[in-house]
Structures are given as C-alpha cells and as structure tokens.
C-alpha cells in the first residue's frame, strides 16, 4: 500500500472495481457540471468529481497507465485554459453592457439550455478546478514519490 513507484498500482480486486466504476464517476462529474444551473452541484463540485475519477485511475493503475490517457503537461495547460475561458466569458459580457453581464438569452426555466452564460461558466470552472485539483494531487503525491525513487 505504501508503495511510491506508482508503476504497478494496486491489487487485481482494486483494478477490476476501478475499471467498472471509473467511467461512471467521470460521467457523474459531467452530469453534475451540465446540470449545475438546474440542480445542486456546478462547476466546482463536478470538476472535483472528474479529478477524483483520474485520481482513482492513478491510485489503482499507477502513473504510466494514467499518463497514457492524459499527459502531465496537458493537466497544467488545461488549468490555465479553464481560467482563460472563465475570464473570456466575463469579458464577453461587454457585448451586453458590462463585465460579467449575462450576454446569452435566458431560455426556458428548468430546461437544459437555460440560464444564459451560467452553464458555460460552469464548464469553464469545471475544467479549471478539475485540472487544478488533479495537478495538485500529481505534484504532492506522484512527483515526490518518483523523486524519492530516483534518489
């Protein structure tokens, strides 16, 4: 359990359960984000759930398998992309009159496409928070472990 190499991952039981559940966790995160303007949840919670699905993958299968799916550089890049997207949505508000003005039509209450720019903000925050949390996890857990391994 206290293995730091992150190459082998955990036992077959954990790997099998992870293979069955990790996709569902990822999908649940996307659901939470896309329904953020309709039900409890939103970009922050959904982003953390998506990050958790990658953390689950990392803990069960180890670093190599995880980096085949998403590269280390991509995680830090996505974090910045999310921040720029959120700022971009804020700046697009100038179309309608000001910073953070809700520039899109409101749509019908309780339908998936409603709330103007709020779902877009949720998606931007999701990318930012998800990549940020996973990047922090990698920095605190994975990088340090491999550094010790190298010594």
């Amino acid at each position: 359990m206290a293995r730091n190499d992150g190459e082998a991952g955990m036992t077959l039981v954990v790997k099998t359960v992870t293979r069955l559940t990790v996709g569902l966790i990822f999908l649940y995160g996307i659901y939470i984000v896309l329904n953020g303007h309709l039900s409890p949840g939103g970009g922050f919670a959904g982003g953390v759930i998506i990050a958790l699905s990658f953390i689950n993958l990392f803990l069960a299968f180890g670093a190599k398998k995880t980096f085949e799916i998403i590269r280390k550089d991509a995680v830090t890049a996505l974090e910045s992309v999310g921040a720029v997207l959120f700022l971009g949505i804020a700046l697009l508000g100038f179309i309608d009159g000001g910073f953070f003005s809700n520039f899109l039509p409101q749509g019908e209450l309780f339908s998936l496409v409603s709330g103007g720019a709020i779902p877009l903000s949720n998606i931007a925050i999701c990318i930012k928070v998800g990549a940020g949390i996973f990047g922090m996890f990698l920095a605190l857990v994975a990088f340090r472990g491999s550094e010790r391994e190298g010594k």
């Binding site: 303007h37 409890p40 949840g41 039509p105 409101q106 749509g107 209450l109 709330g115 103007g116």
Partner: peptide, 8 residues
C-alpha cells in the same frame, strides 16, 4: 437569469 438552481 433563467437558471433554475438559485445558487448557480
């Protein structure tokens, strides 16, 4: 705002 979730 047209958003059903008031917190959002």
């Amino acid at each position: 705002t047209g958003a059903a979730n008031i917190v959002a």
